[in-house]
């Protein structure tokens, strides 16, 4: 991997929406204003979902477009002018950071908090993109990882937004599915 970090050799410390830039290790290494650091990303997953930093050891994190963070497990040059580097992971540069549904699906099994387990009927409605009343949730508001049980084990479905007694499915339109209720 290139040792060029965060645009400092380019003399233009701005986010460039056309290319992937590797995240700086810590806030102290930050050159591009507003860019999240690797340490902050790891802390966020730890604090929000209890996913230990060890889970992401070996992965690198990249920004393309304002606040869109990608997770990657290979070798890439920095910056990278390609179509994709790994998979979309997290949306930063806004008050509440938002995990992608794909990140929840890929890594959500490691989560220990802010996980909401849905019964068969609720799980099917969630996957279909429906919002649903869920006043019985007494945990945090904000982004939750929704799971349901498949053959005896919980499996993440995606990301929901919990506000005012309601669980909003934020499954993207292209990923919504009409699925059977599996009792």
């Amino acid at each position: 991997m290139s040792d060029n970090t965060d645009g400092e050799k380019r003399g233009d410390p701005a986010n460039d929406g056309q290319r992937f830039d590797r995240l700086p290790e810590t806030p102290a290494d930050r050159v591009v204003e507003g860019r999240a650091s690797r340490a902050e990303v790891l802390d966020w997953w730890q604090e929000r979902f209890g996913i230990g930093t060890g889970v992401f050891e070996g992965y690198s994190f990249w920004e393309k477009g304002a606040g869109k963070i990608w997770i990657f497990n290979g070798e890439a040059s920095d910056p990278s002018e390609v179509e994709a580097v790994g998979m979309t992971f997290l949306r930063t540069r806004q008050e509440h950071w938002k995990p992608t549904g794909r990140a929840a699906s890929r890594f959500g099994a490691h989560a220990t908090r802010n996980v909401i387990d849905l019964g068969p009927e609720r799980a099917a409605r969630f996957a279909a993109g429906e919002d649903q009343d869920l006043p019985e949730w007494d945990g945090d508001w904000g982004y939750l990882i929704a799971t349901h049980e498949v053959a005896g084990e919980p499996v993440p479905i995606g990301v929901g937004l919990y506000l005012y007694d309601e669980l909003r499915s934020v499954v993207p339109k292209g990923s919504r599915a009409d699925l059977p209720v599996v009792e």
């Binding site: 991997m1 990657f72 290979g74 070798e75 390609v82 994709a84 580097v85 790994g86 998979m87 699906s105």
Partner: peptide, 22 residues
């Protein structure tokens, strides 16, 4: 859930490795 892929948009006949780290 593939995390080790880089996606490129080139004509494979003249594929350039320049955007890559190797």
């Amino acid at each position: 859930g593939v995390t080790n892929a880089i996606v490129t948009n080139q004509d494979a006949r003249n594929f350039s490795v320049k955007p890559l780290a190797f």
